[in-house]
Computed example of a mutant assay.
Amino acid sequence: MTTLYFDCFSGMSGDMVIGALLDAGADPVKMEAELKKLQIEEEYTLSWEKVVKNGITATKFDVKLTAEISHSHAHDHDHSHDHDHTHSHDHSHDHDHAHSHDHSHDHDHTHSHDHSHDHDHTHSHDHSHDHEHTHSHHHAHRSYKDIVEMIKVAGFNEEVTRMSLAIFKKIGEAEGHIHSMPLEKVHFHEVGAIDSIIDIIGAAILIDQMGITSIKSSPVPVGTGNIQIDHGVYPVPAPATLEMLKGVPIAKSDIRFELTTPTGAAIASVLADAFCSMPSMTIDAIGYGAGTKTFKDHPNVLRVVIGKE
Score class of each variant (00 low, 15 high):
1 M>G: 15
1 M>Y: 10
3 T>D: 11
16 M>F: 04
24 A>Y: 04
26 A>P: 05
31 M>C: 14
32 E>P: 09
33 A>Y: 14
38 L>V: 06
38 L>C: 14
41 E>H: 08
50 K>C: 05
52 V>F: 02
55 G>R: 13
71 H>K: 10
78 D>L: 09
79 H>I: 15
86 T>G: 07
86 T>L: 12
89 H>F: 14
94 D>H: 12
99 H>Y: 08
116 S>K: 13
121 H>R: 08
128 S>R: 10
130 D>S: 13
137 H>A: 05
140 A>S: 15
143 S>R: 01
150 M>N: 07
153 V>F: 08
155 G>F: 11
155 G>Q: 08
157 N>Q: 06
158 E>A: 12
165 L>V: 14
170 K>V: 10
175 E>N: 09
189 H>F: 11
194 I>T: 01
201 I>D: 01
205 I>V: 15
209 Q>G: 08
212 I>D: 02
217 S>G: 01
218 S>D: 03
218 S>Y: 15
219 P>Y: 12
228 Q>E: 15
229 I>G: 11
233 V>Q: 10
234 Y>Q: 11
243 E>S: 04
243 E>K: 00
250 I>K: 08
251 A>W: 11
251 A>F: 06
251 A>V: 07
252 K>C: 09
254 D>G: 00
259 L>R: 04
259 L>C: 01
260 T>L: 08
270 V>R: 04
284 D>P: 07
287 G>I: 00
288 Y>R: 00
290 A>E: 01
293 K>G: 11
296 K>T: 15
300 N>M: 05
300 N>H: 09
302 L>K: 14
304 V>A: 01
